[in-house]
Design a protein around this nucleic acid. Structure first.
Lengths: 209, 209
DNA sequence: TATCATATTTAAACATGTTTAATAAAAAAA
DNA sequence: TTTTTTTATTAAACATGTTTAAATATGATA
């Protein structure tokens, strides 16, 4: 790596470290680009040159940590537990993680999850990874005779994610909601999705729309 | 109403009209407070005095229209159709409405749905209204023997909303996704929630978490 | 080595949401 | 009516994310 390249990476790292520190400490809305630049010992313009925008910096600064937590949730997932228990394990790890600084992650998700397509590479990749992983898990459950064979595993995985994400949104917006309250709620929703809400007679009659 | 009060309301209405026009025309991000103020014939400061912030103005300017559409969706809802058909009817009306200006509603929802609790009175009220209405509908289906009696109707209504909202999010973020694609996807998810994904043997064994 | 081209950094300027302090007009009080 | 208080309005200032144009440093080329 050329000298030019190394100093560039050093500068980038200085900014990242400063951003992580100040985002955590003051929250992303109260901490300005100039604050971050000062902490890193560079100009505000340099921060923009390196990271394009404040939102993009927030994304880069935080998603690495999130990915680490997802990875940890996956590796510690009970291998032989039921589908719901495995989903709840991931949710517990992630909700607990976000609980460490709710305001920070509320702003992160707001500013990244609603960007137009292609503007949020991290999030998109994480979601795709989840769908593949959890969809594969559901496929396995089909083979074991636990999930019905006609079920679309990817749709099921996406549905579980929707439930997970909605509860997360409410959790991040609602200070008095504890991790356990969020988990209990998600368990109720996810369990309904597993077992359905119709009576068995209706299910047998049921036509897909 | 005193003279002071009437002129105040007139000014407020001028700003609202100007805001609706420009938000629709240029999108909420490209249209500035000064643009709106100029169009309304008042100062930018006046806009802030009347509506507190640009986001709050966006919310007031657009949610009335949204509420009108919800009301219309409810009144045109087929009374004797199945639960899924009724949900899909509401979704079709709303997705078609949002399709008229996706970028506008993407920004609106991003900026309001993720505000901290209490900062988004319209949204909160609409969601509460939906949960009551749809929850009541599910309760009726219990009495008719279509939905199982042990099902928590409010949790079911919230789950359907989660699915509806997640698909809406993807729809608003993804230009090449048509209304029909969104509806098809929602139908698949919602149908899974109605009928579950487990085999019948597993359902009978199934323990809630 | 000297020169040119390229990449990195930044000071200053800009755009825009919001606040402040002042003004003017209406209502209330005298 | 005159005076005082309250309120609606705004010009100017401010804060902050971002852009621009210039300067500086590095690598390539002669």
């Amino acid at each position: 790596m050329s000298r030019r390249e190394t100093t560039k990476q050093e500068t980038r790292q200085l900014i990242l470290d400063a951003a992580r520190k100040l985002f955590q400490k003051k929250g992303p809305e109260l901490c300005t680009m100039r604050d971050i630049a000062r902490e890193a010992g560079v100009s505000a313009a340099s921060v923009v040159v390196h990271f394009k925008s404040k939102t993009a910096l927030l994304e880069v600064a935080l998603y690495e940590d999130i990915e680490r937590n997802i990875a940890q949730a996956v590796t510690t997932m009970p291998r032989d537990a039921a589908l719901l228990a495995r989903l709840m394990h991931v949710a517990e790890v992630m909700y607990s993680f976000y609980d460490g600084n709710r305001e920070l992650y509320r702003v992160l998700i707001r500013d990244t999850a609603f960007e137009a397509e292609g503007e949020n590479p991290y999030l998109t990749r994480q979601l795709e990874g989840y769908l593949t992983f959890f969809g594969g898990m559901i496929e396995q459950e089909k083979e074991r005779g636990i999930v019905r064979p006609e079920i679309d595993a990817r749709i099921a995985a996406a549905s579980f994610f929707s439930l997970y994400f909605s509860v997360l949104m409410e959790f991040l917006r609602t200070p008095h909601m504890t991790v356990n309250m969020a988990l209990e709620r998600l368990a109720l929703c996810a369990n309904q999705h597993l077992t359905g809400i119709l009576t068995h007679e209706e299910m047998n009659d049921g036509r897909s729309a």
